[in-house]
C-alpha cells in the first residue's frame, strides 16, 4: 500500500507557497466522513426500525458484543484458537514452500520434473480438498493445520522459484569467479537476492492462511471463528456474529501491517515497486 499513498506526480508543485489548506484536505476528510456516515446509517436504520430485522443489530450493539466477547473470553478464545491454527499452518507451509522453492529454483532438473505437477495442483480450490481430507484426518486441528499449510505452500513456492530465477546472473557469475562453493552461494547470494520475492510470497500467503483457516473451520466445524460464525448465524445471534467479523477484519489488518513492517526491515534495500496480489 505504500505505493498508493504517494502523491501523484506534480502534486502540489504549482501550489501557491502560502496556501495553508491542502486542496485535497477536504476529500481526505470526506473519506473518513463517508465511513462515519455509513456507520451512522447502519446504527439509525437498525434503531429506528427502518430495517426491522432480527439479523440487523445496531452498530453499537455489535461494539458492545465485541467488548463483552473479548472481555468474557468467549470471542477472544475463539479468535486465539483460530490464530494458533493459522500460524502453525503458516509456519509449516511457509517452511516447506521456501525449501521446495529453493530446490526447484536452483536445480534445473527438479524444476522440469516438478513444476508441471505444481501447476496442476495449484489451481485446485481449497474448499474442494477439505471433504476428502476429513476422511483421513478427521475434523480436528490436524486437518485444519494441514489444509492451511497446503494453501500456503504454493504461493511461497512459486515466488521463491520465481525470485531465484530472476536473480541477476552477474551476481552468480561473480560468486563463481571468486570460487565460492555452492553452499556459500546459496546462503550469501541466492537467498538474499531472492528474499524480496520470498517475503512477498509469504505476505500473500499470510492473508490466504487466514482465509483458509476460516474456510476449513466452516466446512469441518469443531471450533474457531469460522465455526463460531456459522453457529451464531444459525443461532440468530447476529450481534455476536458481526462482532466476530469485526475482530477478523482487525486481525487481518494487523497481520498484514505487522508483516509489512517486518518486510520493510528485512529488505529495506529493495526499492522495487510491488504488485499486490
Amino acid at each position: 500500500m505504500t505505493v498508493l499513498n504517494q502523491a501523484p506526480l506534480g502534486d502540489g508543485f504549482l501550489a501557491p507557497p502560502r496556501a495553508t489548506l491542502n486542496p485535497y484536505a477536504i476529500s481526505r476528510a470526506g473519506g473518513w466522513i463517508l465511513v462515519v456516515v455509513a456507520l451512522m446509517v447502519w446504527e439509525l436504520s437498525a434503531r429506528s426500525g427502518l430495517v426491522s430485522s432480527q439479523s440487523w443489530p445496531p452498530f453499537t450493539d455489535v461494539l458492545k458484543a465485541t467488548a463483552e466477547g473479548l472481555y468474557s473470553g468467549e470471542l477472544s478464545g475463539v479468535l486465539l484458537s483460530t490464530l494458533m491454527r493459522m500460524l502453525t499452518g503458516f509456519v509449516i507451509g511457509g517452511a516447506i514452500g521456501v525449501i521446495l522453492g529453493l530446490l526447484i529454483g536452483t536445480i534445473p532438473v527438479l524444476h522440469r520434473l516438478l513444476s508441471p505437477l505444481v501447476e496442476a495442483l495449484r489451481p485446485l480450490p481449497i474448499p474442494a480438498i477439505v471433504p476428502p481430507l476429513i476422511l483421513f484426518l478427521g475434523i480436528d486441528d490436524t486437518l485444519k493445520v494441514f489444509v492451511v499449510s497446503l494453501a500456503v505452500v504454493f504461493p511461497v513456492l512459486i515466488n521463491t522459484t520465481g525470485g531465484i530465477r530472476n536473480i541477476d546472473s552477474v551476481l552468480m557469475q561473480t560468486a563463481r569467479t571468486f570460487r565460492k562453493g555452492p553452499l556459500y552461494r546459496l546462503f550469501f547470494v541466492t537467498l538474499p537476492a531472492a528474499m524480496p520475492a520470498i517475503l512477498a510470497g509469504l505476505r500473500i500467503s499470510l492473508s490466504l492462511a487466514l482465509v483458509t483457516t476460516i474456510v476449513a473451520e466452516m466446512i469441518a466445524g469443531s471450533g474457531g471463528v469460522g465455526y463460531f460464525l456459522i453457529v451464531t448465524q444459525y443461532g440468530m445471534q447476529p450481534a455476536k456474529m458481526y462482532a466476530a467479523i469485526l475482530c477478523l477484519a482487525a486481525l487481518g489488518y494487523l497481520l498484514n501491517r505487522g508483516f509489512v513492517l517486518v518486510e520493510d526491515r528485512l529488505v529495506a534495500w529493495d526499492r522495487r515497486s510491488e504488485v499486490s496480489a
Binding site: M1, L4, Y24, S27, R28, G30, G31, W32, L34, V35, A38, S55, S207, L210, V211, I214, V215, M218, V225, G226, L229, I230, T232, Q233, P238, M241, Y242, A244, I245, L248, A249, G252, Y253, L255, N256
Partner: peptide, 21 residues
C-alpha cells in the same frame, strides 16, 4: 481520497467470513 478509508477497512476482511451475514 473519498474511497480509500472505506476500501482499506473492508479489504483485510477475510471474505469467507461474510458468507454467514
Amino acid at each position: 481520497n473519498m474511497f480509500e478509508p472505506i476500501v482499506e477497512l473492508l479489504r483485510p476482511l477475510p471474505k469467507p467470513a461474510l458468507v454467514p451475514p
